[in-house]
Every structure is written in C-alpha cells, then in structure tokens.
Amino acid sequence: MAHAAEHEYTTTGLSNRKMLMWVFLGSDCLFFGALIATYMVYRGQSLVGPYPVDIISVPVTTISTFVLLMSSFAMVQALAATNADNKRAIVGWLLATAFLGSIFIGFQIFEFNSFKNEGLTLAGNLFGATFFTLTGFHGAHVTLGIIWLLCMAVLGAKGRLGPGTALDVEILGLYWHFVDIVWIVIFTLLYLIGGFDAGPVALPGG
C-alpha cells in the first residue's frame, strides 16, 4: 500500500483528521438531538393548522429516503474505487453520490414549497417552526456535502485521488453517511410516526 507518504505520528496512533471528523460527528449528534427533542416536545401541540396529517406525504418522502440510501451506497463505492486506484470510477461514483444527494435536495425543495403553499410556515405554528428548523438544518448538511463531493470529484478528475489520499475520501464518506443516518431518524420520527399527527383534540373555550 502507498500509505507511507502520509505516515503520521500522533498520540493515539490514529489519524488526527479522522479523529476530528468523528469528534465533529459526535457533537453534531447533540445538535440534531436538541432539534429532534424540540420537535418531539412540541409534537401535537400546534393550536392552528396545518397539521402533519394535512400535508405530510409519506410515499413521496419514502422515495427521497431511498435516493439518499442509494447515495450512501455510491459513496462507499467511491471509497472502494479510491483504494483500488480506479481513477474513472472514483470520479463516477463521487458524481453519482452528488447527483443522488441533489435529487434528495430537489425533493426537499419541492416539499418545502408545497408545504408553504398549503399554509405551513416557519412562524405559523409549532409544527412549522420545529419541522422547518430540523429538516432545514439537515438539508443544509446535505447541501454542504454535495459541494464537498463536487470539489472532491474535481480533484479526482485531475487525477489527484488514489490510495495515498484515500483518507480524504473516507472522511468525506463519514460525513455523508452521518447525514444519511440523521435522515433515518428524522424520517422515522417526523414522517412514519409523526406524519399522522393532527392538532389538539379539544380546545376549551375554543
């Protein structure tokens, strides 16, 4: 293996950059954990509509969830191609990952837009506030990932990626898969379970 070029001496014997990414991902768990918990606290507490059951389309989001899962598969293939030093495959899989991620974002833009047209806004009710904040921040993570993927694909096209720089692709992959697992949680809680929520059952004096 041509890893000798980047032989690092660190106190843990592990790559500091990879460690940094894992520490970041661990802290990002807290970030999303707080947003998800906020959503759960206010779940079913909106006093005015639209409520999740009025606007959430589980079938549409199941498709975009498939797309994001598929992008994770493309990402591991990009790393495998990097380790195998297959220059064309590296660029191909990286672009495929970015493309699938873009489709996911396209679905999200479509969803946000149709929700807005049905009256759900960031300031309209608790559901809108917590939903848009949580999924919006996830979408921002995906968008950042797409930009990173495209930058990496440019490096790949210049022939700068290979076994010696596999760590760069691996760290990008960690970030991308993390975005995927966050979506696994959001999809389950906000769509599969929370998608059938409505407003308060009875409002005294209402």
């Binding site: 592990l14 990879k18 991902l25 661990g26 802290s27 768990c29 707080a34 606290v41």
Partner: peptide
C-alpha cells in the same frame, strides 16, 4: 476501525439522548 472512534461517536450520541430526555 479502532474502537476509540466508536466510543467518541457513541459518547456524542449518548449525550444527545440525555439532552432529549432532559427537554422532554
């Protein structure tokens, strides 16, 4: 991979659960 990565990540995840439980 090295177990240290797992511990760091699961540590963050565990703290996230605590934050969630505290809020709830």
């Amino acid at each position: 991979d090295n177990k240290l990565f797992t511990r760091i990540f699961l540590g963050g995840l565990f703290l996230a659960f605590l934050v969630g439980l505290a809020l709830l």
